[in-house]
Design a protein around this nucleic acid. Structure first.
Length: 116
DNA sequence: AAGTTGACCCCGA
DNA sequence: TTCGGGGCCAACT
């Protein structure tokens, strides 16, 4: 409490959570959506990532993958290899566009953020 | 203004 | 077991 999200913008809210993802860790769109209280809007999370380039801050979208741990949005980066490259740079093993040890590297925003 | 899409997720056949 | 379709909310054209 004490820090209620003033900006009602759905996008900024998503970016806020993504920015909280520690390096070397990954999360899923649905997890972020649930953390925001909009589990049904998991698609919007990905949409917000697409708009991440419009964000006032640098959003580590490369740390966000789908439920299977696959780099679904790698094709949306400047270079498709950039997403995998960044993940490996943080210590995340990525093989065939799939994050290894995804369950182990998975970072749950709902629990870490301690929301509700 | 209205329609369609979208970096998803879940369930049924 | 694998494969397909529908649902959801909001933004984009």
């Amino acid at each position: 409490m004490s820090e209620p999200i003033k900006h009602s913008d759905f996008f900024e809210r998503v970016w806020q959570v993504v920015l909280e993802i520690p390096a070397g860790r990954v999360t899923s769109y649905g997890a972020v959506a649930k953390a925001l209280g909009a589990a049904k809007s998991s698609r919007m999370v990905g949409y917000a990532m697409n708009a991440s380039h419009t964000a006032p801050v640098d959003v580590p979208a490369h740390r966000v993958v789908n439920r299977k741990g696959i780099l679904t949005g790698k094709h949306h980066f400047s270079n498709p290899d950039e997403m995998q490259n960044k993940l490996e740079a943080e210590g995340v093993a990525v093989i065939d566009d799939q994050v290894q040890n995804f369950e182990k590297l998975f970072w749950n925003p709902t629990e870490e953020l301690g929301r509700f």
